[in-house]
Amino acid sequence: MHQLYTAVFEPGFFSSEPVRVALGVGAMVAIVSALVGVFTVIRGQSFGGHALTDVATAGGSGALLVGMSPLSGFVLGGVLGAGAMEMIGVRRARGRDLATGIVLGAATGVAALFLYLDTTSGATTGATQQILFGSIFVIDGSTVHYVEGFGSLALVLLGFIYRPLLLSSINTDIARARGISVRLVGTLYMLVLALSVGLSSLAIGTILSTALLIGPAAAALRLTKRMGWTLAVAASIGVGATWIGVLLAYDSYYWGSSGNGWPVSFFIVGLVFLAYLASGLPVVRAVTGRRMPSDLNVPVVER
């Protein structure tokens, strides 16, 4: 028994301060991403979420350049990007895609420049690694407070707009007829999305943060038929994948003889992907009581 225990938890796992921080920050990030992600999927805004990660890349690398913390750059970049999309933006789904594409293109260009400048300047040579693939094991105390602050803000905002957001995600005309300002609710939601992307960029990097946003939500949507359960299952998958990912990354230092571990982001994203695959298995669906995949013959729905 003890042998099995030490095989799963390599020595020092629970006493390691970076691991404790990683588990705490990881949980917050995973919960925010998963809950926001459910709405992102329902609203068909995965592309928008992805574009924000590119804006976050520009923000984070720019922040490093001027000596600020990457997290502030991620969040600031995300919020400005979301604002830009809303401003270019647009009532129809096509226009929204267009606005997203334009912002994405511009942001990627700026990010390329900033990352180049970061890597060529002496103090920030590790920037590319840190921005693109995250830094969950090297988060300092003050950053933890920012994670808690931004995370709580995102959750409170999401809880505040929950019902009008749900109604306007189902049908904008019905929502407008009820007196809901679909535009205002949509803008607040983009702000929440920007916060969420900023947090996940810090934890697992800008490139991989889309996976944490979309993966758990997509899996949960296949398994549940009511919103409360969808949110709970998505959050559980996100937190589960993040915690197991942190554990595996820690353990991986002991696997080879080289003494180099594998990147934690790889494990988290891999586990999220496995969870999504598993959610399609008939066995899993039978247990959760959802009928056969609605995704096999999805009718085209006008958004």
């Binding site: 459910v38 329902i42 995600s169 005309d173 019905i174 038929k225 919103m227 995704d295 009718p299 729905v301």
Partner: peptide, 16 residues
Amino acid sequence: GYVPQKALLDPDVPLR
């Protein structure tokens, strides 16, 4: 109260 024309609901939205 309002029921719009062609209000097809998305089968992926988790609402009973």
